[in-house]
Write a protein that binds this DNA or RNA. Structure first.
Lengths: 226, 226
DNA sequence: ACCCTTTCGATATCCTAATATCGATATTAT
DNA sequence: ATAATATCGATATTAGGATATCGAAAGGGT
């Protein structure tokens, strides 16, 4: 384990991709992989990959051969916390909240949603995707009893700050925020914003460019020149 | 409309936050807002906000007052494509795919999922959240008939490249990829990777830091010094 | 009418992540 | 054994977004 170092957010974001590829080559019996090879597959700079891997790998990379695959897999899984599950609560059982509750793939990443909360009386008491929905008043009690440190926020933007305050008051130390709003929280509480609208914005801009170029009759080869 | 300019990805990501805040102040009857004020609320640098707003705003900002709220809202909504819906197909009706199918909030962002596709015979033919699931063989025909340009990829990583190839072959020009793999696609096809695992990785790293600091008995005020 | 303050737009600077360079080292081939 | 080569680790450079600075313009107060 080498979890005393801190990776940059960018490096962290690359880790899941490294892991996915490492698992794949491991299945094929590959025991050692070079940063160069990984970089080619993932379309990244080889120095970047080398630096990333050396950050989390317990052993050193060997010149001419590379890094041990199995060890890298273990190191990344450990670093990302895939082996010890983090318990979380979800606040806001609307359309998006239900969607996340139903996504059982989070367990692969070490996340376990233990309960959900909402203010809507019609929803409270229901069991959504195997998770019981409690009234918001019970949030603090449950979080304290179960030592929950992660809150997932899927309420509308106008209620997000209030809900965040409740989470902080319940001892939560990290908030996964799906609302499009900048939350105020104490410094020791991490707010990780998830911005699905941003991805859609990127798609939209690209499609618009495609359309206008098309209507201009631009030579298609200009694209490939990029 | 001022959709001839191209924003950086970073600027695009900020747009939904601007929009959310603008809608809020608009409801309160505010007609003009300064970049400075927006920057304070959203915790951004004021020059950055000013530059972003001037990029998409059709009129100029007035010294001492700011930018017209209603116009900004219209401009951002236009730019992000919220007013003319983009039709999309979803490939991979597993846990995550179902979740996205059920999330009707995408319509607010101009995205409309018209159909889903899968290879699993048990799922094909079903109607999930009002969307019919077709066999993968029907993908090309439907995309061409309905002029679909966006594909949402929620298949396991090992099948992602194959599914992406099919989407490209069906005329799709932008892929929203939830698989943790680097897809190969022609240059004119945009691949927008969504990396939920990365967010969880950031949360995990933070919690680990919190725990180790706690066990070290570090003065809590060190946090606020950041 | 004049001054003061706030904000704008443009330009210059800074900072951090990504990339390039280079000597050192291990493996393979001759 | 020796030479050739691929990769590593460390250091230097580059690039691009974020931030700071400054003159100009517009509104408010006296």
């Amino acid at each position: 384990m080498k979890n005393d170092v801190n990776l940059t957010v960018q490096a962290l974001q690359r880790m899941p991709y490294y892991l996915q590829h490492l698992r794949k080559v491991d299945e094929n019996g590959v025991q050692i992989i070079s940063a160069t090879a990984m970089a080619n597959v993932l379309d990244l700079n080889e120095v970047l990959v080398r630096k990333d891997l050396s950050m989390i790998c317990t052993s050193k990379g060997k010149p001419k051969s590379g890094f041990p695959v199995k060890e890298l897999i273990d190191n990344i899984e450990d670093y990302l916390g895939y082996n010890n599950t983090m318990d979380a609560v979800l606040v806001g059982v609307g359309s998006l909240g239900k969607a996340l509750l139903g996504n059982n793939e989070f367990s692969k990443f070490g996340l376990n949603i233990v309960a959900a909360f909402d203010i809507d009386e019609d929803i409270v008491g229901q069991v959504v995707c195997g998770k019981k929905v409690f009234p918001l008043e019970k949030l603090q009690n449950l979080c304290e009893r179960m030592h929950i440190h992660i809150g997932i926020l899927t309420v509308p933007a106008e209620f997000a700050q209030e809900a965040a305050d409740r989470l902080v008051g319940s001892g939560v130390r990290a908030i996964w925020n799906f609302a499009l709003i900048k939350l105020n929280a104490p410094d020791h509480v991490l707010v990780q914003n998830e911005n699905l609208a941003a991805s859609l914005a990127v798609l939209s801009q690209h499609l618009r460019n495609e359309m206008t170029e098309e209507s201009k009759g631009v030579d298609l080869n200009e694209h490939t020149a990029l």
